[in-house]
Amino acid sequence: MVENRPWLTVTRHLVLILGVFIIGFPIWIALVASTNSSSEFVSGLMPLWFGEEGFGNFRRVLTNEERVLGVSVSASWMMWNSFIMAMVIAVGKIVISILSAYAIVYFRFPFRKTCFWLIFLTLMLPVEVRILPTYEVVASLGMLNSYAGLTIPLIASATATFLFRQFFMSVPSSLMEAARIDGAGPFKFFKDILLPLSVNNIAALFVILFIYGWNQYLWPLLITTDENYYTIVMVIKRLMSAGEGNIPWNIIMTTTILAMLPPVIVVLGMQKLFVKGLIEQEK
């Protein structure tokens, strides 16, 4: 503290509390909505306090009782799909990126620069700008409506490769020389020295990539027509298309809470790692 100005401290807390309130208000609304019955959302004012239907709403959504979700699968099944998608994308991105970064930093081979630039190109092309041709490629490979189609096309990652490359370059080269003198080959060096050193980076990256995978929307929307592969985020939009007046807001908000829960738990549970991983992406 540079100097003591009590009024300034009070203002700071007031602004922050107001900020927390505004940021959190939508969640309050969602929680409240998930405990009310659908008749509360027809007209007048939406409920601002908890109702009695919370248990029933969550049970109906999780088991898809009476087909409340308008599809043939339950929310628990779709959360499982989202989980598989998030895990495969996060782990896959980490594995293939750490291997490529290892190759680029610790080996000298022809076309090293070319490979690096090829990977760099992927950073420039988010799936959103080339959706139709990517869809056609996936369709021609017969990967529509499969976990492979949901995950593999999103698994290449320039960002993660850069991060690991940056980190490997900061590892002192004397470690590598010492390992070589002791007779360690590339596998042993990677497994026994580099991997243990990278644990923190891997964990930090995992948090960000898990959220990235869980929150995918456009891609699963395009390549799944079989309801067995629907993700939890996708189904919310389907419920929204019921038409004004028929939108089952309590069911939507219950689904919304379920869709938010896992990534929010990951962010809050691994907060330190998450913040570190996020800020380091910039470097």
């Binding site: 594995v95 291997l99 610790y106 990977i119 992927t122 490629v137 096309p153």
Partner: peptide, 24 residues
Amino acid sequence: AVFSHKVLPFFLLAPQLIITLVFF
């Protein structure tokens, strides 16, 4: 401080490169 293998790095890069080529 580099390994002198000439083939291994391509195996390490293969998954990333194949996905990049096919899907990007």
